[in-house]
Computed example of a mutant assay.
Amino acid sequence: MTRLDQFLAFSADVTAFTVFQLRGTGQAEAYLGAVTDVVGEELVGDLLDRHQALGTGELDDLLRREIFSDERLGPIARNIVKLWFVGTWYELPAAWRERFGPLDGDVTFTVSAMAYTEGLLWPAIGANPPGAKGPGYGSWSGPPLIPEIA
């Protein structure tokens, strides 16, 4: 399994979108590259290897216990979720930087020009990004349709 495949598998588990949907954003490589540039190959590898090693059981509980509660990996994992939904990497918390040291590229930034329009926020709420992906004439006349959650 490639690092991109691992990243997509992790991302699918934490966003509730399928790997197919994530690939469809066209941002998978850019997001993995951005995360790797900020935190480094070692931390990305640790996070994705930890995810891959999760056993069988209730996935939400395993993710919470093994990844999101981890003081080193949890903030990175949460940033990856935010990255997929809004296309922005947010600077890691001050407490993380104090404990593990500052990272040169750890600043808040938008990953790519397409990250805003391809954010998972929009399909999650059943809307189109303002100023992009016009939904068509007259679509504004009704409220957004929120899709059923499977």
Rank of each mutant, 00 (worst) to 15 (best):
G40V: 02
P75A: 10
L4N: 00
L63D: 12
N128F: 14
A30I: 11
F109V: 14
A30F: 09
E98T: 09
Y31E: 02
V44H: 02
R72K: 15
G74E: 09
E58V: 11
N79V: 12
L54P: 02
D46K: 11
S69L: 10
S139I: 04
R72W: 01
H51G: 09
E42K: 07
W122P: 14
T18D: 06
G57L: 09
L48Y: 07
G55D: 07
Y31R: 10
G24N: 15
F20S: 14
G55C: 08
L121P: 06
G40D: 00
Y31P: 09
A28L: 05
G136K: 05
L92N: 01
P102D: 09
K133S: 12
G126N: 08
L121G: 07
A124D: 07
L62S: 03
W96Q: 08
G26P: 12
S69E: 09
Q6M: 14
A77S: 02
G105A: 11
S141W: 00
P143K: 15
F7V: 13
W84D: 02
F20L: 06
F68A: 02
V35C: 13
L8R: 00
V86W: 13
A16T: 09
E148W: 04
G136Q: 06
G126V: 02
Q21I: 06
R64N: 10
N128W: 04
G119K: 08
V19A: 13
A77D: 04
Y116C: 05
L59M: 12
T56M: 03
D46R: 15
R65D: 13
L145S: 14
Y90G: 03
H51S: 10
F10W: 01
T25H: 08
D60C: 00
R23D: 07
A34K: 11
Y90P: 01
L73S: 10
T2E: 08
G55I: 12
F10A: 04
K82M: 02
V19G: 05
P144H: 02
Q21Y: 10
D37Y: 01
G45C: 08
V81N: 00
L92Y: 07
P147L: 09
L8E: 10
T18H: 09
E41H: 12
P147Y: 01
P143G: 03
G136C: 03
I125P: 07
L59K: 15
A94E: 14
Q6P: 01
V38A: 08
G55W: 01
V111H: 01
T36Q: 13
F10P: 05
V39A: 12
G119E: 04
P102F: 02
L32G: 02
E71P: 15
Y90N: 10
P102L: 00
I125Y: 03
D104W: 07
V111G: 11
D61Q: 13
Q21D: 14
D13C: 13
L120W: 06
S112R: 10
A95L: 08
V14Y: 08
E91S: 11
V111L: 12
G119C: 12
W96Y: 13
I80L: 04
L120G: 11
T110D: 10
G24M: 13
E66Q: 06
G126P: 07
E91Q: 15
G74Y: 09
